[in-house]
Simulated scan of single mutants.
Amino acid sequence: MTRKQYLVTGMSCGHCAAGITEEVSQVPGVTEVDIDVAAGTVFVGGTELDDVLLRAAIVEAGYEVTEPVSA
Rank of each mutant, 00 (worst) to 15 (best):
Ile20Val: 13
Glu32Phe: 12
Cys16Thr: 04
Gly14Pro: 05
Phe43Glu: 15
Tyr63Val: 04
Val52Leu: 13
Gln26Arg: 14
Ala38Gln: 13
Leu53Ala: 15
Ser70Ala: 14
Leu49Asp: 08
Val30Asp: 05
Glu64Phe: 05
Arg3Asp: 05
Ala56Lys: 03
Val69Pro: 07
Arg55Leu: 01
Glu60His: 02
Glu67Thr: 14
Met11Gly: 04
Glu23Lys: 04
Gly19Asn: 07
Val37Leu: 13
Val27Ile: 04
Gln5Thr: 11
Ala61Thr: 05
Val37Gly: 10
Val33Asp: 00
Ala39Phe: 11
Thr31Met: 12
Ser12Pro: 04
Thr47Arg: 09
Glu48Thr: 08
Gly40Thr: 06
Cys16Ser: 05
Leu53Pro: 03
Leu53Met: 11
Gly19Ile: 00
Ala71Asp: 13
Ile58Thr: 03
Val69Arg: 10
Asp50Ala: 12
Leu49Met: 05
Met1Arg: 08
Asp50Leu: 10
Glu22Asp: 12
Ile20His: 03
Gly46Glu: 12
Asp34Pro: 03
Ile58Met: 06
Ile35Asp: 00
Ser12Met: 10
Phe43Trp: 15
Gly19Asp: 01
Ala38Arg: 11
Val52Pro: 10
Thr66Glu: 14
Asp50Cys: 09
Glu23Ser: 12
Gly40Cys: 12
Ala57Ser: 05
Asp34Glu: 15
Thr21Trp: 09
Tyr6Ile: 07
Ser70Asp: 14
Glu64Ser: 00
Val42Phe: 14
Cys16Asn: 08
Val24Ser: 02
Gly29Ala: 02
Gln26Ser: 09
Phe43Val: 15
Ile20Asn: 04
Ser25Ala: 06
Thr41Tyr: 08
Glu23Leu: 01
Met1Cys: 06
Val65Arg: 05
Asp34Asn: 12
Arg3Lys: 12
Val69Met: 05
Leu49Thr: 07
Ala18Glu: 08
Ala39Arg: 14
Val69Asp: 07
Val42Thr: 15
Gly14Cys: 04
Met1Tyr: 12
Ile58Glu: 02
Ala57Met: 07
Ser70Pro: 06
Arg55Gly: 00
Thr31Arg: 14
Ala71His: 12
Gly14Ser: 01
Glu48Phe: 07
Glu67Leu: 14
His15Val: 03
Val33His: 00
Glu32Leu: 11
Val42Ser: 15
Thr47Asp: 14
Leu53Phe: 03
Val59Thr: 14
Val8Thr: 06
Val24Gln: 06
Glu67Asp: 15
Pro28Ala: 12
Gly14Val: 08
Thr9Arg: 03
Asp51Gly: 07
Gly19Met: 04
Thr47Gly: 10
Leu53Thr: 08
Ala18Asp: 08
Gly29Lys: 01
His15Phe: 10
Ala56Tyr: 03
Asp51Trp: 04
Val8Gly: 04
